[in-house]
Design a protein around this nucleic acid. Structure first.
Lengths: 202, 202, 202, 202
DNA sequence: ACAATCGGGACCCCCCGTTATT
DNA sequence: AATAACGGGGGGTCCCGATTGT
């Protein structure tokens, strides 16, 4: 008749989503060491449900990581193509830099968490490494593609090695943004200086 | 009296050193979550000694962090002034990049640990933050100084903003080297490309 | 209507049988602490079905115990009357000893499980006790009957107390066969020695 | 000066002993599934101390098993040599049978526990197997020795195979006494009948 | 200075049972 | 009849720190 009444599978999916959301918030505030059932309690269910959906705490962390990555990617890609006027490779590259800086320095719990997850993947949680590798590779390739596009449309100097430029921009951006201990204003100032240098170099 | 026989204080210092060394090795292998008495056992003493010297586990971690930073700084500064010929700012900057890359991609437990400590300082262990801030600040300033020196001796283009260049090099280096999941060869290749780009830009 | 098409009830019975079979295998391998849904998964259904058929885990264990006892009894009684020639009480008694030894030392999961269930009935699972008592009583009586039959047909010395002999044979057999930790060959050697002694004593 | 003040090591040993005693009582009443800290609480300490002394619950169970075996062995060996008059092999063998029956049918928690531990060693707790094997082997050998001694001193018929007799007595005894579900009076009656048969056969 | 022992809390895992659903 | 989601409690492990002794 109608799907006004949530079907079984839909309700389960909703629960799962609530759990991921709750985990993002809780992990962002308390770190990845946050208690297992605190997350469940935040989502209004019990540990049993959490265990049912994710199998273990590691499973939950992995799910959160994937979800966080996807949400960030969506935002950044949206920004890249936003705005009026022409979209040269150079413009898109700079917009990506700006938007990444804006988001990561926003100080929102979400980006604190995302940074934490990236770190954990490299150090304390090797099981997240494959996920991290994939997202890093995708990001690097995307950067290099933007440089190549810029060279094709004439907005970026053709005598630069596109791979060198793309990788460097990516690395510098990461380097700047991972200095979480510095105040956001400071980091933004650095990125601006970096951006100006970039304008000269491209 | 005489210090031919090792004084009580000297013996204590020796124990303390052994503990720090053991902690570096153990943390490098098992991560910072390694057990408190595993470290002590490695050093041939018991937990009591550790507690006596460092007060708490956090105290030990902090001591290890400081020690690791000092050891790294020593090595890198040595390399910067090594070699024959003139030591222009440009040369010293490039040597610093090379040597940092060499060390961090060496895969030795020591550098795995150092990276882990940097990460922990910004995410899971806020008490390490002050230490991290100081070392980062020193590193950034040192980079900028090298660029300025290069501009004074004519080895680096004078129309670049020295702060922008120094900070960017520092950030990019960190970005490249923190990708621990990538094979060392890969990371070294990236740094080489970065170095070539740098030669053009400076 | 017709029962050409398997009726609902028949399908249910088939599921029940599959569950018992799966439980025998799983319990034999992992012990009675095996997980509830592991059994169900082995049978290709979920926990719910198990709960539906047996009410609880204890219910399943009890059902398995009864089933295992029946299967064993069938085999042993078959063997007792097998073979050509006369079937004196003595012969039947010795055949029962031989066959029991053969089966329990076979090392098949089934007999490992049967032994486990006997043990559990007397220690950790008092609810199985009534079942165990019945089967033990039946076994003892059967032994004594065989001795009495042997005395009637002249194959066993008449001056022995039939109850003493029957109970002792039963007990000794249990004692020998419950030494699961010893290699089967060892246990079989013991039973052979016991059999030889028995030939002299009967 | 004096050891009135309990030295450190002695106090620790006392704690350890209290823990073993508490575990014996608790396990005897509630089975081996008894809670870890219930034992500790009974002994007046906390889980931490228990963990310190035995490493794990399995470690505690193993320690309890060993201790229980030793206590039983002491009692039974004492009884074997007790009483006035000559100590022929035959007498000692029969006394051992009597005393074992008396103890195991005493219904004391201690012997319920001992039986439980024997069972667990063969089924649910393979890590106890080595301990069980050793004690069983010792018991078997002891039985056979008694028969041999009896044959040497003329109290037991020389034409019996001593190994067959010893092993059979041992096995039958185990078989009788492991029928925990039967009332003690019943089991004692059986053992008496067995004893009478034995008198005829030896 | 260092050792040995003990206190104690927190947390994840585990798994059984039940309910709503088809 | 059978499923899948969910509730919910309990236990062992772990490990830091404190105390007491030497």
């Amino acid at each position: 008749v109608s799907d006004l009444a949530p079907t079984r599978a839909a309700a389960a999916q909703a629960t799962r989503d609530r759990l991921v959301d709750a985990a993002i918030e809780r992990f962002a505030r308390d770190g990845l060491l946050a208690r297992f059932d605190a997350v469940a309690a935040d989502a209004g269910v019990t540990k049993g449900a959490l265990y049912h959906h994710f199998g273990s705490k590691d499973g939950l962390v992995a799910a959160v990581y994937k979800e966080a990555i996807n949400r960030h990617a969506e935002r950044v890609l949206d920004a890249e193509d936003a705005g009026a006027g022409r979209h040269t490779g150079r413009q898109r590259l700079l917009r990506l830099v700006d938007e990444s800086a804006r988001l990561y320095t926003s100080g929102t719990p979400f980006y604190v968490l995302l940074q934490t997850l990236h770190d954990a993947a490299r150090t304390s949680r090797p099981e997240l490494e494959p996920i991290a590798r994939r997202v890093q590779a995708r990001q690097r390739e995307h950067m290099v593609q933007l440089v190549r596009a810029g060279q094709r449309d004439g907005s970026i100097r053709a005598d630069r090695d596109p791979e060198a430029v793309g990788l460097t921009v990516n690395a510098a951006l990461q380097g700047f943004l991972s200095q979480l201990s510095e105040p956001a204003a400071q980091r933004r100032r650095w990125v601006r200086k970096f951006r100006d240098l970039l304008e000269d170099v491209l």
